[in-house]
Design a protein around this nucleic acid. Structure first.
Length: 871
RNA sequence: GGGCGUUUAGCUCAGUUGGUAGAGCGCUUCCCUUACAAGGAAGAUGUCGGGAGUUCGAGCCUCUCAACGCCCACCA
């Protein structure tokens, strides 16, 4: 029939995860199995990877995120979709520039020593060296992404897309340049956006400073947490309804230390109850003051520079000029004290803005920046989620997204960095006239804007810039855009997801994806965020080396809950996946060793099945149904536990054991093969490797391409399944009895049963092997004087124990059972006696309860009789 | 200030149409039974955070309180 090559091969005795994983991944890659075909007639399913930073190394977050994407991709591939998982990296503006600058500083250099061009050259060299590293690491996860399409947010295609988007938005009036107060990081030397600013609670002080009134006695006392900014004050503001200060509004006061004169104004923004109820207005260094200043047409006086130092200008006292913010604060306070204008100092806890990248305290600073007007872009992005064309899973993130979108503020997109997309605006060298265009209109006379764009500006275009946009006729764009599912953590919903949605809708008129699958964040065993500085990171590469990639994937998957809770991990947790992989290997090894037929795939003869065969097929069928259902609904953790339970506790513990008694090779192989398909998305390597060894019909080249199992009604065997459950209960009861009476497995037992003769005849061989039952006799009445008895499904199984029996022990055992049964009966009884239950509960439930009642009553009756006879 | 999440066995956590609780690890006893000791068999363990309500019936729904965590806002 088949030649020797087609014979199922045996598996190695020891499961060497890493070796198998390396070989298997190479097999897929060498055969180009991850390459998407944009001319395929199959329906498309596509995912774009959240592009990891070029600076990055693989961490547990990637491992989880990558695994989940790969599971979806592999599942859909097996379902017959033409899948594309688009890989790539992000240029990570600030992060990368920081790395290069740090390297330079070791040589005692700054980027300015090199100049822009040289610096970028150096950065490109570094980026090119590193941009493959992280995607190479993703391969260790078994990622089935299409590396032939690998992209980079600074590559030519992305750069063109960025330029086009910028110019279009500008022409539509949705990008503007202006002088505004922004979050300035004195260390990064750049503006950053609101979402890149984190607030930390700090212990500070509230200083109350007296400002003397001009031309009259008296003073007004203001409260501030930042006295060093006072040199930029342009007014004192009080609440118009504050009677304390009613008479002062409109008057002028004289600033301490500098003697500059500023007006007292009224503005409703001022909180009467806070501090002294009087507020100094410093528009150049506080966002709220900036607004107040604009309302009252006040000047803006800058006293702190881009480095966070006091400026050298007429407003700052000479002895403070050039000092850092911190030094200046200390000295200012001292000076105020000396001048006896410091009225009060109190401790004050407040929130201080920090740069997300380097944790430096943000300086709100007046500067000229580029902004995207978000409100018009947000509206369709809100609608898309509200009308369901984009769905979040879990749903609760929708609310989060909508709340942010509905209160959206303009997005500061310019960064004073060199690494990134240089803004396509050009200034005339002489006139200063500005042109926003794809190309420099005249290289001799125009100079390009030096600012670059926020990194998230280009990643916001990721789903379509990677598909060939702006060429909407490109094959990839037509086949794979819009993408299907976006998989990411909740921490970048605002940074990334929201921006992709706004940009996608604006420029492609379609939502960039239909589902956003949000998973939890990986934390350490104490629930702390993992970070290098805390030293609590776990390296996925180490875990893969130690436990294997499939073990890592399975463990992570099994920890995913439907609600997307954060996942706490520790090294030992991965033993769970390792043990399961080992179990799969060993069970498969047993099956393969026992296959004699050469051509056994799917030759299921439904007319020639034993009770056990029907049971396992029925179980498998139920599993198939529920796995498909759960995968469609992103309940991936559930999928892992269902497969674990089925394989370990059904297939291995029972079916394989039964097959040692009575073997049906077809079923044994069929169930294993189907299981390998089912587990493949989660544990791709081990399943593929075993499948390659067992599969003989090679009509499909790889498990990766096999059809994902489907539910079949002809595999429903409900009655047989129930019977098998009785068999298992019987075996368990007998084993329990053995354990309780300390009967060694070596000594066989005989049993008497009073019912179900047909079934017991059928399962005699099972009981013989699995419960060491020597003989089964049938008798309505059995002498139980020297016996132990178990009752399974109302069948009385009597086990004569001769002198072995300890009657007291047996009575105790039976009484324990009565107790358990009675407790249940009691509660069921009270339910059934309640007319309201009978009337209002569904008929089905009432019937079920009644059935259970009669079952319990019978069992209790039987056990009572047993006790009576024993006593 | 606003919003969200969590609180279930010693530990880590599952538990979606409401029908008196599950897994893994750990623990106890026994077993190297010819796939697997990273294994097998048999067990023990919970007033499901507190309180109230709806219901015949609540871990699950409503309200309330408490503890912990996160996000947004940013009263100087």
């Amino acid at each position: 029939m088949s030649d020797i090559e087609n014979t199922t091969q045996n598996l190695e005795t020891v499961y060497n995860a890493r070796q198998i994983e390396k070989e298997t991944y190479k097999f897929w890659q060498d055969n180009n199995m991850f390459i998407a075909d944009n001319m395929s007639s199959k329906p498309a399913y596509s995912i774009v990877i959240p592009p990891p930073n070029v600076t990055g190394v693989l961490h547990m977050g990637h491992a989880l995120d990558g695994t989940l994407q790969d599971i979806l991709i592999r599942y859909k591939r097996m379902q017959g979709f033409e899948v594309l998982w688009m890989p790539g990296c992000d240029h990570a503006g600030i992060a990368t520039q920081n790395v290069i600058e740090k390297n330079l500083s070791r040589e005692g250099l700054t980027r300015h020593d090199l100049g822009r061009e040289k610096f970028l050259e150096k950065t490109w060299v570094w980026a090119n060296e590193h941009k493959n590293r992280i995607l190479e690491q993703f391969k260790l996860l078994g990622a089935s992404f299409d590396l032939s399409r690998k992209r980079f947010t600074l590559d030519e295609g992305c750069s063109n897309a960025v330029k086009k988007v910028f110019v279009d938005l500008y022409n539509k009036g949705l990008i503007y340049k202006g002088n505004y107060i922004v979050n300035w990081c004195p260390r990064c030397q750049s503006a950053i956006s609101d979402v890149e600013t984190n607030y930390e609670t700090e212990d500070g002080h509230l200083w109350e400073i007296s400002y003397a009134l001009k031309d009259e006695m008296g003073a007004i006392v203001i409260a501030t947490t930042r006295p060093e900014t006072m040199f930029g004050d342009v007014a004192i503001a009080v609440n118009p309804t504050d009677f304390k200060y009613k008479d002062l509004i409109g008057k002028t006061c004289v600033m301490p230390l500098t003697g500059r004169q500023i007006p007292i104004i009224a503005d409703e923004y001022v909180d009467k109850t806070f501090g002294t109820g009087a507020l100094k207005i410093t528009p150049a260094h506080d966002p709220n003051d900036f607004e107040v200043g604009k309302r009252h047409n006040l000047p803006q006086i800058k006293v702190i520079d881009e480095k966070g130092c006091m400026m050298k200008n007429e407003y700052v006292p000479p002895q403070l000029q050039g000092l850092t913010r911190e030094e200046a604060r200390e000295k200012t306070v001292k000076m105020l004290e000396e001048n006896q204008v410091l009225v009060k100092v109190s401790k004050h806890v407040h929130n201080v803005g920090k740069c997300q990248r380097c944790n430096t305290t943000i300086e709100p600073l007046l500067s000229t920046q580029w902004f995207v007007k978000m409100e018009p872009l947000a509206r369709p992005a809100i609608d898309a989620v509200k009308n369901g064309s984009i769905k979040f899973i879990p749903e609760r993130w929708e609310k989060n997204y909508l709340m942010w979108m509905e209160n959206i503020r303009d997005w500061c997109i310019s960064r004073q960095l060199w690494w990134g997309h240089q803004i396509p605006a050009y200034y005339h060298n002489k006139t200063g006239e500005m042109v926003v265009a794809l190309e420099n209109p005249d290289k001799d006379n125009y100079t390009q804007e030096t600012d670059v764009l926020d990194t998230w500006f280009s990643s916001g275009l990721w789903p379509f810039e990677t598909m060939g946009w702006p060429d909407t006729n490109s094959k990839d764009y037509k086949k794979f855009y819009p993408t299907s599912t976006l998989v990411t953590g909740f921490d970048i919903i605002f940074f990334w997801v929201a921006r992709m949605i706004t940009m996608g809708l604006e420029f492609t008129k379609q939502p960039p994806f239909s589902t956003v699958y949000i998973h939890g964040l990986i934390r350490d065993e104490h629930g702390q965020k993992m970070s290098k500085s805390k030293g609590n990171t776990i390296d996925p590469v180490d875990l893969i080396e130690k436990y294997g990639c499939d073990a890592l994937r399975f463990t992570l998957t099994s920890l995913c809950t439907y609600g997307g809770q954060d996942i706490k991990i520790s090294d030992e947790k991965f033993e769970f996946g390792r043990n399961f992989a080992n179990k799969i290997w060993n069970a498969s090894r047993f099956v393969l060793m026992n296959l004699t037929k050469k051509d056994d795939e799917l030759n299921l003869d439904l007319n020639n099945l034993s009770l056990a065969d029907k049971w396992i097929l029925n179980e498998l069928n139920e599993v198939v149904k529920s796995i498909n259902d759960n995968l469609e609904n992103y309940r991936i953790g559930e999928v892992a536990s269902i497969l674990y339970e089925f394989f370990w506790n059904k297939y291995c513990s029972w079916y394989i054991e039964l097959s040692k008694i009575e073997k049906n090779e077809n079923v044994l192989a069929y169930v294993l093969e189907q299981f390998l398909r089912l587990i493949h998305p989660i544990m791709p390597h081990i399943s593929e490797a075993i499948w390659q060894k067992m599969h003989v019909k090679k009509d499909t080249k790889a498990l990766l391409y096999c059809e994902y199992p489907k539910y079949h009604t002809q595999l429903l065997f409900i009655d047989e399944s129930k019977k098998m459950e009785t068999v298992f209960e019987t075996i368990k009861a007998l084993r329990n009895l053995r354990a309780e009476f300390n009967i060694p497995l070596g000594s066989k037992i005989s049993i008497f049963v009073d019912k179900n003769e047909d079934l017991f005849l059928q399962i005699e061989k099972y009981l013989a092997r699995l419960a060491k039952v020597e003989s089964i006799k049938y008798s309505k009445e059995s002498n139980i004087a020297q016996s132990a008895v178990c009752v399974v499904d109302e069948t009385k199984i009597t086990v004569p124990l001769k002198d072995l029996i300890d009657i007291d022990l047996e009575i105790k055992r039976q009484n324990k059972k009565i107790e358990k049964l009675s407790a249940e009966l009691k509660s069921i009884d009270s339910r059934l006696k309640n007319d309201k239950f009978i009337n209002s509960a569904p008929l089905e439930v009432v019937e079920k309860t009644k059935e259970r009642k009669s079952e319990l009553e019978n069992e209790i009756k039987l056990v009572r009789e047993i006790i009576k006879k024993l006593a």
